[in-house]
């Protein structure tokens, strides 16, 4: 295996594109090195992107936030402006692994690992986040949900690197929340998860909503019917009931020792309801 740490994106892309053997991007390495250790992958080339200028920075821009691909999870919670604007995204990211893992793991890596149970991703999708992808043909911007295509697989082409995650600018009275079910209190992978992103009007009526579910299908699921159930409401019992039903209806989970199909389907609705209530309160609504 060769290790390269170029100081610019163009070189990184070229190295990955030209490599004949198995080539991988290294940012936090918390998935990559585990897979290497387990013999699941045998890289011929690893391209460490952390030396690229700006790649480990969170920037507040005119259009929202730009989170570089190599920003470790712990840095998200240290950014007060990000926590204030997107508490659900930060709480999702901070549920990944231990403090040790948080010191290394990245949002972009969590996305590119392609797991439907990725804790960092549902809230990004609920936020309508986009990613900047650099590749041999230049840069393109795509929706977060268009990156994973099935467990462990992404739509990225050879030589392409997710360079940054873009979060849109927040209208007033907006917030989000993320909840997951695990059988312990920490250090586990979501059995089911739900992210809800809301914008309220001046009277506390939901103006805009987006709901995403994790670990209930081969990819993270966006549930427009669930969002529709909340829009126009003040999160009364009936709209929450409709939200939960829409979420359960959108589930196509696996059946395994961590959770049955029936359990995951039911809990998806319960978590979405609770996450909606948290997001609503954070956005300034009163229940």
């Amino acid at each position: 295996m060769r290790y390269e740490a170029p100081d610019n994106m163009k070189s990184a892309v070229t190295m990955l594109a030209k490599e004949q053997g198995a080539a991988f991007v290294l940012a936090g390495g918390t998935d990559l090195l585990v897979k290497m250790k387990a013999g699941m992958i045998e890289p011929d080339l690893v391209v460490d992107i952390k030396k690229i200028k700006g790649i480990a920075e969170i920037k507040k821009t005119a259009t929202g936030f730009r989170i570089g691909a190599a920003v470790p999870g712990v840095a998200l919670s240290e950014n007060a402006a990000l926590v204030k604007a997107w508490p659900g995204i930060v709480e999702g990211a901070n549920l990944i692994g231990s403090k040790q893992i948080q010191g290394r793991c990245t949002m972009a890596g969590n996305l590119c690992n392609g797991s439907p149970a990725a804790d960092g991703v549902p809230a990004l999708i609920a936020a309508k986040a986009k990613v900047v992808v650099s590749g041999p043909k230049g840069k393109r911007t795509v929706a977060v949900e268009d990156i994973p295509v099935s467990p462990g697989r992404t739509s990225l082409k050879k030589g392409e690197i997710v360079e940054a995650i873009l979060l849109p600018k927040r209208p007033p009275k907006s917030s989000d929340a993320y909840l997951r079910f695990i059988p312990r209190t920490e250090m586990d992978i979501a059995v089911v998860s739900a992210a809800v992103n809301l914008t309220l009007d001046a009277k506390g009526v939901v103006k805009d909503a987006r709901v995403a579910l994790g670990a209930v299908a081969p990819t993270i699921v966006v549930v427009p019917a669930a969002a529709h159930a909340l829009i126009g409401s003040k999160l009364d019992a009936e709209s929450l009931e409709k939200l939960a039903a829409a979420c359960s209806a959108a589930c196509h989970p696996i059946d395994d020792k961590r959770g049955t199909i029936e359990f995951r389907t039911k809990v998806a609705g319960v978590l979405a309801r609770r996450a909606a209530e948290i997001a609503y309160r954070r956005a300034g609504g009163k229940i």
Partner: peptide, 18 residues
Amino acid sequence: SVTVNGRLVCSCLVLGAE
């Protein structure tokens, strides 16, 4: 566990080359 640039990490998940 060690710290690298002040961040707590598992040294088994860091390459020496990094």
